[in-house]
Design a protein around this nucleic acid. Structure first.
Length: 570
RNA sequence: UGUCCCAUGGUGUAAUGGUAGCACAUCUGAUUUUGAUUCAGCCAGUCUAGGUUCAAAUCCUAGUGGGACAACCA
């Protein structure tokens, strides 16, 4: 409490710590990360990954990866590959890779045992009838007319279900538990359903029946020897069922007397201005709101990677938000802080003008070229410098000039001096406009003795601008991103589609970049000075360079003033 | 007409009966050849009411508020 370096310990870690430190009953820790391969991993999964893998990294043990592939209708190999890639990218290693489908035979056998023990039965009612009999949370259910079907008949029907003799949707296997339980999940849950005419990505057409989540998850944990089955809060209500199946399993496996997996639940990640459910994300893709799972606006790991987020920044972010049982909504600014914090130390500083306007230095020799030196990272001299060409005709940002500026405007305006970063101090002496009054060129004088490095350059100048030489700069496309939604919590909207931000993507084809960027490699991070952090899009080619804006530089309130002014100008 | 879970500054998260701390955000100042960074600082909190105790954010009871559960999804 008084130690500044003390790290925060979440409640799940406390449980583990107790085991490790006190040497309690189990000395072995085994966790698992169990994604369903029905979509790409998002930053909410990163939270689970950091928990599952992180806990064994820290306290010793094994974390395996298990693909929870019990529903061939939604799952495929593309998703499996993306999941493998994203976990590695995040910086974690699994012990073994398992598939729930590896246990289909074992689960089948277990189901048979349950039937034989009179604890499971085949129900041939419609899903609607079954739902009606289930009652409501406030009202207890009633027994199915098939509940007391003879064991022999159950065995026979269950076999037929798996042999393609029964039409999909007409029969299910249910566990016989308690139709009046206050916990809905204990009201004779369906444990097997028929899925026909869908090839499973691993078992093909071998099975016609597939176990439901509740009948697969805990059992898989048990088969693998998982000790701590950590998941999100919405599964807390499943825990009694999880334990019930483990109890049954232990009856048939008396040899594992001292072993029992336990489920622990933490709060899932909610982020402002986005949605986190795979279903909703898939919907955005389907309706072309975004361009796929790796669209830089998506909260997926693939999207964040393409946007320019680093694995370190995501891990640090997860570290900051913690794990509790409180349904929290995390402000996206914390994520943005995390990537700025990381990139500030890593990203090379370069000059890029996104919205160019010509700046002509009328007293600078026409053919003269000077190579100016730019510090790659002002926070770290070891990263050195690079050179950029300077000449008479330059581009600066349109935003950096204003004809009628208030005194809060530090940048260029007629009659005022400004510093061209790493070059000269210049004074604006006039502009040229076309017939419609649109600004075409800005004219300035430079002071030769104010070149960076010279004594005279130490003069205090309030404004400093970035620039590129027209002749020496290269055109590029820059993609600017905004939040996907216009409200903080789109998930709580009746129709979250109404809150989609129509301006979440702005493509700028006018950008001019310094030559240093010509050979940048895909995903490489940069700071475009005064603009923000950007990275190279994977689609970028030598002939068409494309950059993504990761995040702006921090905007103080003073800085925000400039945006107001610009809006008013339009 | 239920069962379970949760409640600490604006946001998130620590404090495991003994000094309510940290981060982000906001704001103020200093530094600055990025209106960035860095540095210094300000603002601001235990849902309510009882109870137990020398001592309660922490334990108990009730209330209030929020969430989860009624897929042949996971």
């Amino acid at each position: 409490m008084h130690n500044k370096n003390k790290e925060n310990t979440n409640f799940i870690e406390s449980i583990i710590k107790k085991i490790v430190i006190e040497g309690k009953s189990i000395e072995r820790i085994q966790t698992r990360f169990p994604p369903e391969p029905n979509g790409y991993l998002h930053i909410g999964h990163a939270k689970a990954i950091c928990m599952d893998f992180g806990i064994v990294k820290k306290y010793g043990g094994i974390c395996n990866l298990r693909f929870d592939d019990t529903n061939p209708v939604k799952e495929n190999i593309e998703y499996i590959n993306s999941i493998l890639k994203d976990i590695i990218w995040l910086g974690f290693n699994w012990g073994k890779i398992y598939y729930t489908s590896d246990y289909f035979q074992k689960l089948w056998n277990f189901a048979i045992q349950l039937i034989q023990a009179g604890k499971a039965y085949v129900d041939e009612q419609s899903s609607k009838e079954i739902a009606e009999q289930k009652g409501t949370p406030n009202q207890s259910g009633i027994n199915s007319p098939y509940r007391d079907r003879p064991i022999i008949e159950n065995l026979d029907l269950f076999n037929k279900m798996n042999q393609g003799e029964i039409t999909e949707g007409t029969m299910v296997l249910r566990a016989k538990i308690d139709m009046s339980s206050p916990n809905m999940h204990l009201r004779d849950p369906i444990i097997y359903r028929i899925i026909d005419h869908h090839l499973h990505h691993r078992t093909g057409n071998k099975w016609k029946v597939y176990p439901m989540y509740d009948f697969a998850h805990g059992q898989s944990d048990y088969f693998e020897g998982v000790t701590h089955s950590i998941c999100t809060l919405e599964f807390a209500v499943h825990r009694p069922l999880y334990d019930w199946f483990i109890d049954q399993l232990k009856i048939f496996h008396p040899e594992n007397k001292d072993y029992r997996p336990s489920q622990y639940e933490f709060n899932r990640l909610n982020l402002t201005y986005t949605v986190m459910s795979k279903r909703k994300l898939a919907q955005l893709i389907r309706d072309n709101i975004v361009n796929g799972w790796d669209d830089p606006r998506m909260p997926t790991l693939a999207g964040l990677r393409r946007r320019g987020y680093t694995p370190e920044s995501i891990r640090n972010f997860i570290d900051k938000i913690g794990y509790t049982k409180f349904e929290a909504l995390i402000d996206i600014s914390l994520l943005e802080y995390s990537i700025r914090e990381d990139l500030n130390t890593k990203a090379k500083r370069v000059f890029v003008v996104i919205d160019p306007i010509k700046l002509i230095l009328i007293n600078y020799p026409k053919e003269k070229i000077e190579m100016m030196e730019i510090t790659n990272n002002p926070g770290n001299d070891l990263e050195g410098t690079h050179k950029i060409a300077f000449s008479r005709e330059l581009y600066i940002e349109k935003e950096d000039f204003m004809e009628n500026a208030s005194k809060n405007f530090y940048r260029l305006t007629i009659g005022k001096e400004v510093r061209l970063k790493n070059a000269y101090i210049v004074k604006c002496i006039g502009v040229k406009k076309n017939k419609s009054g649109i600004l075409k060129e800005i004219y300035a004088e430079y002071y030769p003795q104010t070149k960076s490095g010279l004594k005279e350059s130490n003069r205090k100048i309030k404004g400093t601008l970035h620039w590129v030489s027209i002749k020496h700069s290269i055109p590029a496309e820059v993609r600017l991103y905004d939040y996907l939604f216009t409200v903080k919590n789109p998930s709580e909207e009746k129709n979250f589609y109404e809150k989609i931000n129509p301006n979440s993507l702005t493509i700028k084809t006018t950008a001019r970049i310094e030559k240093e960027l010509e050979n940048a490699s895909p995903l490489e991070n940069f700071q475009f000075q005064r603009l923000g952090y950007f990275n190279v899009d994977p689609d970028s080619t030598k002939n068409k360079l494309i950059f993504n804006k990761t995040v702006s530089l921090k905007e103080s309130k003073k800085n925000k003033f400039k945006f107001k002014q610009i809006k008013n100008n339009k």
